[in-house]
């Protein structure tokens, strides 16, 4: 954290070359400044790295910053100012889109904490594996049967609709479990500020639990999508 501050303090205004205090506008010539690239999405909104976010507060901050950066406000500015406002605005909008959604938010946080890693892979929950394999077979069969055997097709459809409900509610349970870890993370994060070296193991295990839940959720999401498409495309 302190390193970043030092870096910011050394930045110069692109226009008048006076030293910048880390704000988005130069104190001296009031020109818009590129948002420092090392700011993460939380920092862009001046928020702590928490997973629980008050959405109304986030929206208020988003609107406030939009009123500073939006390209509409720099229409009559120089090309340089236009380019900076476009870039700042684009980053702001991407940050808002990510933090507003709890799933995107936690995925982003995991990436931040663990460095640039690949997307979290989808993985079937062990206890559901067999059930899902069976379901996929039924879905294939349902698609094949089509209109040739209306009775069989209706039966399969019934089974699939029941499964769809079951998996849907299972996904919701996973999400609930995931969100219940948010507060635990936030508490840990607050403690971390005072004791940066403590509880490393706890943090790591918490991140891993969140990742596992996300993996399972991503898997169920794909299964649900396939089901949805199959049932929709082959409507009797």
């Amino acid at each position: 954290m302190s390193d970043e501050k030092d870096l910011l303090a050394r930045s110069l205004c692109w226009n008048c070359h006076s030293e910048l205090g880390g704000e988005y506008f130069c104190d001296h010539c009031i020109k818009i400044q590129p948002a420092p690239s090392q700011l993460d999405y939380f920092q862009r909104f001046s928020l702590p790295r928490h997973l629980t976010i008050n959405l109304q507060d986030l929206e208020r901050r988003f609107h406030e910053l939009s009123r500073k950066f939006h390209p509409d406000l720099f229409q009559r500015g120089s090309d340089q100012e236009k380019a900076i406002s476009l870039e700042n605005s684009a980053l702001l909008n991407t940050a808002y889109r990510t933090l507003r959604d709890p799933i995107l938010r936690v995925e982003y946080l995991i990436r931040l904490e663990e460095g640039a890693v690949k997307d979290i892979p989808a993985k079937a929950p062990a206890d559901l594996l067999e059930e899902i394999l069976e379901l996929q077979e039924s879905l294939e069969e349902y698609k094949q049967v089509g209109k040739t055997a209306p009775e069989k097709s209706a039966d399969l459809r019934k089974t699939l609709l029941v499964e769809q409900k079951r998996i849907g509610s299972r996904k919701m349970v996973l999400e609930k479990d995931l969100f219940s870890l948010f507060e635990e993370w936030d508490r840990l994060q607050d403690q971390h500020l005072f004791k940066p070296d403590g509880q490393q193991a706890h943090r790591r295990s918490l991140l891993q639990r969140m990742k596992d839940l996300l993996s399972a959720r991503a898997y169920l999401k794909t299964v649900l999508q396939d089901l949805d498409e199959g049932l929709h495309d082959h409507h009797p």
């Binding site: 390209p71 870039e87 605005s89 684009a90 909008n93 991407t94 889109r97």
Partner: peptide, 8 residues
């Protein structure tokens, strides 16, 4: 439905 401007 991403707010524009936006980037990736």
């Amino acid at each position: 439905n991403s707010t524009i401007p936006t980037n990736a």
